[in-house]
């Protein structure tokens, strides 16, 4: 198992390198001159050629591409993502806290989403084809078609304004979590429970369940085997749900004025704050790679057959 983990980690390092390179490349593909963007962002009224060359030098933009990448990558490893074009502050001083806020929201939402997905998936699998199963699937079908920001807006209007129960914006107390977590849970559980359901159903039909029953094992014990097998497939999907949620809380944060990554990034995009965008992409891509590796490791821990394959 130990060797599996180290091999799996070794596998993700080159991937991170490629991702960081592509991220850096992307900014350099921009049709805009970064120096010009900086000057515009700082509100310099007259942009002269002289000023441009000076700024370029300050930013180190006159050096060759690969050297710039190397320096950037090295400093990124120390969480130094450069300075924001807009505020001039170090990127991490803004990105760090925002990431933490988004991460908290993500973890709480992921926990709720996973809980409901498993419960609904298991119930639907047990009642396959029955009214309950069909109605849950029918309702989830419509839920997946609802844009999460619209759902969020409707909830804000309904719960907070008409009924005046809960805070609708900001991140003040645990009560602030309720609405955004609800929106994310509804949007994602309606997709992910299907996965648990189909894994359960395919396991219900497996021979080992038949044999366990034929040996006279009580349903409780059979269910433990069933869950073990169904969830070991589902667990990797759920692991991957965390970075997916991290990335797509953007709209939900926007609706509920959550001071997280999403709000930060949308502002960065609108003001073309390249270092901020770069850092955002890199952090999330790293989260993707890390959780992907974690998913594989967890799955291998539960399924000995997979350990050989790497």
């Amino acid at each position: 198992m130990g060797s599996y983990i180290s091999r799996r980690i070794a596998l993700s390092i080159p991937l991170l390198a490629v991702i960081s390179f592509l991220t850096f490349l992307l900014v350099n593909l921009s049709p805009l001159d970064p120096a010009e963007v900086v000057l515009q962002a700082q509100g310099v009224p007259m942009i002269t050629d002289e000023l441009l060359t000076q700024t370029k030098q300050e930013l180190g933009l006159d050096r060759p591409f690969l050297i710039r990448y190397w320096h950037w990558a090295l400093s990124c490893l120390q969480l130094d993502f450069g300075h924001s074009y807009v505020t001039g502050q170090p990127v991490w001083s803004q990105l760090g806290p925002a990431f933490l806020h988004t991460f908290k929201l993500t973890i709480v939402s992921a926990a709720c989403m996973i809980f409901f997905s498993i419960v609904l998936g298991v119930i639907c699998a047990w009642r396959e084809g029955k009214l309950l199963d069909r109605s849950v699937r029918g309702i989830s079908f419509f839920l997946t078609a609802i844009p999460s920001y619209w759902l969020g807006a409707m909830l804000v209007w309904l719960v907070a304004v008409k009924l005046d129960w809960l805070p609708t914006s900001g991140m003040e107390s645990y009560r602030s979590y309720i609405l955004p977590v609800m929106v994310l849970t509804i949007s994602y559980a309606s997709i992910y429970f299907r996965f648990v359901r189909s894994a359960m159903i395919s396991n219900l039909n497996a021979d080992y369940v038949l044999y366990a029953r034929a040996c006279g094992l009580p349903e409780k014990k059979v269910t433990v085997h069933l869950l073990r097998n169904s969830l070991q497939v589902a667990i990797s999907v759920f692991c991957m749900a965390i970075p997916v949620l991290l990335g797509s809380t953007v709209v939900v944060e926007n609706i509920f004025a959550w001071p997280g990554l999403g709000s930060l990034t949308v502002n960065a995009i609108l003001s073309r704050d390249f270092p901020m965008i770069q850092a955002y992409v890199l952090v999330l891509a790293a989260a993707f790679v890390v959780f992907n590796a974690l998913a594989d490791v967890l799955q291998a821990a539960m399924n000995p057959k997979l350990r050989k394959d790497l």
């Binding site: 080992y208 366990a212 040996c215 539960m302």
Partner: peptide
């Protein structure tokens, strides 16, 4: 009665045991 009085032997030995446990687990439980 299942197992104790009526025992079954399945076609696919490979699929008759929970793939995530060692076979002793299922035998022991029975």
């Amino acid at each position: 009665k299942r197992g104790k009085q009526l025992a079954m032997i399945l076609q696919h030995g490979m699929r008759a045991f929970d793939p995530t446990c060692v076979i002793g687990v299922q035998i022991g439980e029975t």
